[in-house]
Amino acid sequence: MPHIDYYFATISPYTYLSGTRPSEVAKKHGATITYKPCDIMGLFSRTGGVPPKDRHPNRQAYRLQDMERRAKLLGKPLNTKPMFWPTNSAPSAYAIIAAQNAGHDVSELVATIGSAIWAEEKDISQDDVVRAALEKCGLDPALADKDMLTSAETFGKNLEDAVSAGVFGAPFFVVDSGQVFWGEDRIDDLDAHLAGRI
């Protein structure tokens, strides 16, 4: 049974645009998937990346156009300059980690948190927003505060694991076959790989 480590940032627009497709691809091929939220700014600093605000204007302009195009192709609403971005991603990441540790499928939760930023103008650093996302997904809102030390340690370990695994952006998929896929627009490639076509 193949396994996918899914590295992502809850504040990433491309994580939002990925929606639940990573889980759908995994299920289609009988693969397991581990969700590994990590600190994207920390990942950038460790792997030669640059935060969007510090990129050359040409790169910033392209990023906005690309986001708009991808959102239209996927039929997803997107505010390219949301009110609460960037923001502290740790509270939302901790909730995802706690929910996964409790045995829940967190695919919908990841998608719901992304939508809160990029489509609903909500601040995912706020406890009430995280709790509302959990509740919307049929999960216990108290998971937002459960085993926070464990979640914090896992969040930090995910960054170390990401760097060790060759990850440098989000979303990023590491398959136990040794193949890696970067970006929302490579989910089809991940699908093809798991199908044995590439």
Results as ranks from 00 to 15, higher is better:
L190I: 06
P77F: 05
V106A: 06
T32D: 13
L74H: 08
A132H: 00
I96W: 07
A102F: 10
R197E: 15
Q179R: 15
A95T: 00
S45V: 01
L73A: 09
T47S: 04
K146N: 06
P51I: 10
A93Q: 02
P51M: 08
A90D: 01
A99E: 00
I198N: 13
K28C: 04
F155K: 00
L190T: 00
I40K: 02
G30R: 05
D176N: 15
R21C: 00
L190W: 05
Y35H: 13
G49C: 06
L78K: 05
T150Y: 02
G48R: 01
D39M: 04
D189S: 11
G138K: 09
P171E: 09
L43G: 06
D145G: 14
S89I: 11
G156H: 04
A95Q: 02
L109E: 02
R69D: 13
E160D: 15
Y16L: 03
E120R: 12
I124L: 10
D54E: 13
V180K: 15
H3T: 12
P57M: 09
Y7W: 13
G49E: 04
S92C: 04
R131I: 01
D123A: 07
D54G: 05
G169S: 15
L139C: 10
V175A: 14
D145I: 00
P22K: 02
A93Y: 03
I198V: 15
P13Y: 09
M83E: 15
A26G: 02
A111L: 05
I97K: 03
D161F: 12
G166Y: 14
L64Q: 10
P91R: 01
D123K: 02
I40W: 03
I40F: 14
H104M: 09
G169L: 12
G103Q: 09
P52W: 07
E135C: 08
M67N: 04
P77I: 02
R59L: 12
T154E: 07
D161A: 15
D54C: 03
I198L: 15
K53D: 11
V180D: 03
E108C: 02
L194Q: 03
F8L: 14
I97V: 08
V110G: 03
H104G: 10
A95S: 07
P91T: 04
I33G: 02
N101L: 11
P77N: 05
